[in-house]
């Protein structure tokens, strides 16, 4: 009955982790400690793989833990468990939203929420940039240890190129693939 246990454990992670993929980490850490399914070292490897592959990081983590614990069916069950609570909650909220979208106050509330939402995304981006451009281990610019010039040059070039008229309309994956090649040639991880 490992599948039921897996489903239930990831259902709880999905229910209590508020605010995106890496929010699942503390829950997974205690899950490993409690069940003995994986060690903290294995969890660190799983985070590394989840961050180096496409897809939502939380989903990647669930798939990895599920597979490690109970093979392919385990991967499927853990992932379904993780997403079930948020699917149910969002379907309910979407229903309400549709019903009250014409309501004057709901409309006014969203007038305030949209700039706030843009600010939350901007703040998350600043954290991401601190890690990706300045190599800080935490999302704080105060912890810069050594600045490498390579990411900064690539960033400047990409910002220029992605705002040229015709180039701008290329699919994002083109820029991602080109960056991957550049990263390998110029050894960005060093």
């Amino acid at each position: 009955m490992i599948y039921l246990v897996l489903f239930w454990e990831f259902f709880k992670v999905g229910l209590f982790a508020v605010g995106g993929g890496l929010a699942t980490l503390p829950f997974l850490s205690s899950l490993g400690a409690r069940t003995g399914w994986f060690t903290q070292g294995m969890l660190a490897d799983m985070v590394a793989v989840s961050e180096s592959t496409p897809g939502p990081i939380g989903v990647n983590m669930a798939t990895y833990v599920g597979f490690t614990t109970a093979g392919v069916p385990g991967a499927v069950v853990a992932t379904i468990g993780l997403i079930t609570p948020s699917v149910i909650i969002i379907l309910i909220i979407a229903g309400f939203l549709e019903k009250f979208r014409q309501n004057k106050y709901v409309d006014q509330a969203f007038y305030g929420i949209r700039p706030a939402s843009t600010a939350l995304i901007t703040a998350a981006l600043i954290g991401l940039m601190a890690i990706s451009l300045f190599g800080t281990s935490t999302a704080g610019l105060l912890h810069i240890t050594s600045i490498s010039i390579k990411p900064l040059i690539l960033f400047a070039v990409l910002m220029a190129v992605t705002n040229i008229k015709k180039v701008r309309d290329l699919h994002p994956i083109v820029f991602i693939a080109a960056s991957a090649v550049i990263g390998i040639i110029f050894r960005f991880a060093e």
Partner: peptide
């Protein structure tokens, strides 16, 4: 190496 550069690219795309 690829991912160190992809992360930079993702930052630029998200900034846009």
């Amino acid at each position: 190496n690829a991912f160190a550069a992809i992360r930079v690219c993702v930052c630029a795309l998200i900034l846009n």
